[in-house]
Design a protein around this nucleic acid. Sequence first.
DNA 1: TATGAATGAGGGTTCATTCAT
DNA 2: AATGAATGAACCCTCATTCAT
Lengths: 189, 189, 189, 189
Amino acid sequence: MADSLGARQAAVQRNREALLAAAAAVFVEQGVQAPIRDIAGRAGVGLGTVYRHFPSRAELVTAVYRHQIEECVALAAALLAEPIPPGAALARWIDAFVEFLVTKHGLGVALQSADPSLLTLHTLMLDRLVPACASLIAAGVAAGEIDPEVTAYTLMRAVGNLCILGAGYERADAQDMVARLLVGCRRAP
Amino acid sequence: MADSLGARQAAVQRNREALLAAAAAVFVEQGVQAPIRDIAGRAGVGLGTVYRHFPSRAELVTAVYRHQIEECVALAAALLAEPIPPGAALARWIDAFVEFLVTKHGLGVALQSADPSLLTLHTLMLDRLVPACASLIAAGVAAGEIDPEVTAYTLMRAVGNLCILGAGYERADAQDMVARLLVGCRRAP
Amino acid sequence: MADSLGARQAAVQRNREALLAAAAAVFVEQGVQAPIRDIAGRAGVGLGTVYRHFPSRAELVTAVYRHQIEECVALAAALLAEPIPPGAALARWIDAFVEFLVTKHGLGVALQSADPSLLTLHTLMLDRLVPACASLIAAGVAAGEIDPEVTAYTLMRAVGNLCILGAGYERADAQDMVARLLVGCRRAP
Amino acid sequence: MADSLGARQAAVQRNREALLAAAAAVFVEQGVQAPIRDIAGRAGVGLGTVYRHFPSRAELVTAVYRHQIEECVALAAALLAEPIPPGAALARWIDAFVEFLVTKHGLGVALQSADPSLLTLHTLMLDRLVPACASLIAAGVAAGEIDPEVTAYTLMRAVGNLCILGAGYERADAQDMVARLLVGCRRAP
DNA sequence: TATGAATGAGGGTTCATTCAT
DNA sequence: AATGAATGAACCCTCATTCAT
């Protein structure tokens, strides 16, 4: 009894994760506006199953990115605890953020869209990521390494935008441009 | 006979210009994916007329932005001719580019889209804008003011991305971020 | 063993009754086409349980209304046994029928629908209610109070229709219209 | 030029009328909630054509019934002008109304639905039909033939309901029941 | 040339129904 | 027996594109 119940719940969970993986992949290929049918097909489930797990596109999008966002949040705390200069900590954190944006998840495109279905994602970023980034900036400012004019939200939006890739503007280009942007955020001597 | 021919040609030309103006306005309001019907309606012409003048969306998009792009090209030449330091010239040119991107034309969004209908726009940028920008960069590099690693195409894509606005990330933010990016493009001392 | 068998059967019966109550409530609120899921949810059981007890919507609908219908049947016999004029007996019976139709059960809508899922309900009405009504009409005809042209089935359909309520046509309106219809069913002097 | 323009407009008008005819037929068979696709198919046009002519279901429904409604309105005026007793005029008008409801148009079902897509139709009835009926009732009341308690709106809803046909309750039954209802609306002696 | 009516593919969403556990 | 996850058919609606006039 408990076994078969557990087995069922496990299957449901597997389905949910298959959907998240499929959605992440499809979002990268087609953007967050990709047809729900495509996601269902990629996950190998029926259309209704997507709607069962994620009644609205917003919930699916949010679920896809939540985990990555939480990892970023955790990293910020970890870096602050390390005995390195705050400016370097910020740089390393931004590197990791870029890695997420660019490598596997299409978050960049997602962040810039005004689409109502992305409101929750935006909120999530505001609530979780911005404070994490702000703490690193504050440390950098306190150490005299970062220009106090720089705000976390704006910087993150800018980095997010710089990570929107395309033909002829690849990952390495985004990394380079972000690094240069950070140089411009240092405290003027 | 000649008169009525001339009159007809003039009417055709007027239609074309009304369409360009309407498309520019609609692109700003709704983005480059706006329904063709909206553009036709705004221009006061029939749907078929849009397709006659611009058989594909790409051609319409390209035509809309071509004029702005040519102004930028001309500005680059003008700035190079002025007796100012090349780094300042580049900064002023980028300022103007940002102005175009941000103020009236939604070019930012257009540039980052992977949509095949924007391929020609991309080509146009490559053909006309990149050389203009490259000439300013080259001058800056020659003067020892700009990092020789910076390439025109990448810089323009980055600036284009930084100019994708949204709620909480307005024109002034984009201008600020672009300025900081340029700081990061200076030759390392 | 006998106990647990009895207990199980009791639970099954409880489920069935919870479903009937839930369906009656949902039919009133949303009509007989309400989603099966809503009924399951209201009854606090799983979807499959609904299908086990009532394999088709028709069976559920019929079961919901059967009890009310039997009450009407019993009332007809009781009224015939009372020492009142047959015309008054018919009027009182119709009043009670209207009460059922209008007050709690949405039967009015159900009776007029051509939906195949309501065929059995229709049959039930034919088999049980029409004879009951016919007996009252026959008594009225015999007493010279009711027009012999009136047939039970037609009258019941008409009353059923008159009891389909809506904004601006409320219970009291239906009662009034039914009363006037009955006036028109009296024997012409 | 004028000819071909006229021909085109005529074709459009024919299409529109084919749609109205198809919709009327489909509404009778399946009710006003019938799939738009079925109406398009019956009319021999594409789906989009239905939406072009009637952007919402409400507009289609209203258009289907508007003509019949206006005929009824006109009839009321004509009957009032005739030298016949007002009670007879009302009876003849109601006969005509029943004819419309029952013969070709399924209006009965339409009138009782609370569906938002039928709001306009309801409004139309309120605005046009109810005053027409009320004028006949007023004349009957003034002549002492009609019970002053009877209101036009309620009577029309009742007649509408009585005209919802089904297996075993046909046109003749509806006519009979409506006639009896009218008897019940006479002034009590 | 210009028009705009017509078409139908495409994508969102709901819900009846099945079936493994 | 009960559960509820999964499925997919069926509808709705929008809009790019074609083409007769």
